[in-house]
Design a protein around this nucleic acid. Structure first.
Lengths: 237, 237
DNA sequence: TTACTTATGTGCAATTTGCGACTATGTCAA
DNA sequence: TTGACATAGTCGCAAATTGCACATAAGTAA
């Protein structure tokens, strides 16, 4: 390793001589079902914080980028590949982990229903419903799950980010299968915003945006008039 | 330090046994003058990248939070206190620094004119004009300054963030002195967006927002009709 | 065939935005 | 003292956006 002392940018400080923070990535894995946002969590079975629920995470190796580390954690701990991953925020409070100084780069991954099912089949993660203010994670019985470390805070930053971006970005589509109805798209928006939206206005806005392509096909299983299925123009990564 | 092996969250990986990334903060210090965005840079006088221009930065100590590290770097390397600092993005490509693996958390600081002057009086930093696409940093003669590491990329992410937030946030005020004219506010918006805006529409929108307070005073030095001075309702941190 | 449910479309009012033209108020120089 | 000038600040209207009530379409289920 090069000697970096007497350096303008890093100012004569040689970090190899000192303790330094560890770097991890944590994944906020969200899905939208039933007009609710759901997050995938792992139950900790060892101290510290045994019994609490945590975001999937892992250390960043020296020879992998942050994005690569996030993708690897998604693959190794959740069993998913190719979800849309986006850096969320970096959390670096000194005491956020009781064991040691850890700086964590949080990533947001938005899952389609089939990815959600696949992750749950893997058996490691559990889905919790996000609700309330301040945000809480609820199990299927409606009981609140205790979260580990600062993960409740990370989840709430994720939800805020989602709310701020859903209007003008194409992030909602990452929650949906390849073909979807306008009602399903509106459900995603309502889940993220926590409100109800006016249907005709929502339809118009989405269709005027020119991003949706009508397939001509209709949904199959409805016990009422079936809605038309749409695709997104530019495949969402 | 606690033994952290066999742990769900951190998955049996003991980082103290391995090399790990170092963590730094880098500051993007921006000001708005003359309908242009300007950034404060340091000239590197030691290898690597001697002669190139870099963002002020420094290592994060184990006992300080990321926000505290950013504030400390601002104080120690730029001689400023109390500027509005906001986390921007974390850059973690493996080869972004040729010496060692460094993950850097970039912060954005928006400076008022008097803060800009104070920083320049400190003598360490120089102001460069940001322009062009892809973004470049120009000196007063219009010549492009070569940037160190991935700092050009960091600057362009900063400008994008600014553009995305200026419409709905109060970030523009952080560029202005306590009392300012509507024209100065519009100049900030135009500098950030790189466009010209319609004056009556801009005035209306700003005044309707209810955030501005007319002081009744007018600017002093104009060689034409003087404009009224306004303040922001909630002091911008 | 009829009731029921959800999809889809239409018309209209209220709000927001873009923009040209107009008026107001200061400085400056003859 | 006065008129040119530059920029501040206002007004009115057209266009675009949005919220919403209501009408109509197209399925299922009895």
């Amino acid at each position: 390793m090069t000697n970096i002392s007497h350096d303008d940018h890093l100012d004569g400080y040689d970090p190899s001589a000192y303790d330094r923070p560890s770097v991890t990535v944590d994944l906020v894995l969200l899905a939208s079902t039933d007009r609710r946002l759901r997050a995938l969590l792992l139950r900790r079975d060892q101290p510290p914080q045994a019994g609490r629920w945590a975001l999937p995470g892992g250390f960043v190796a020296t020879d992998e980028s942050l994005d690569a580390a996030a993708a690897r954690v998604l693959r190794e701990k959740v069993g998913l590949d190719g979800a849309r991953l986006e850096q969320l925020y970096t959390f670096g409070a000194v005491d956020r982990d009781p064991r040691m100084r850890i700086v964590t780069v949080a990533y947001l991954a938005l899952l389609r229903p089939e990815q959600m099912v696949q992750a749950l089949r893997g058996g490691r993660v559990t889905a919790a419903t996000l609700d309330g203010d301040p945000l809480g994670a609820l199990n299927d019985e409606g009981a609140e799950l205790p979260l580990a470390f600062d993960h409740r805070h990370i989840l709430s930053v994720a939800c805020e980010r989602l709310r701020g971006k859903i209007d003008y970005s194409d992030l909602a589509f990452a929650f949906l299968p390849e073909r979807f109805t306008l009602r399903a798209l509106q459900d995603v928006h309502e889940a993220v915003l926590g409100t109800t939206l006016n249907k005709p206005a929502f339809r118009r806005k989405m269709l005027d945006r020119g991003q949706l392509i009508a397939t001509g096909d209709r949904e199959a299983d409805a016990s009422h008039r079936p809605a038309e299925l749409f695709r997104v123009r530019d495949a969402v990564a």
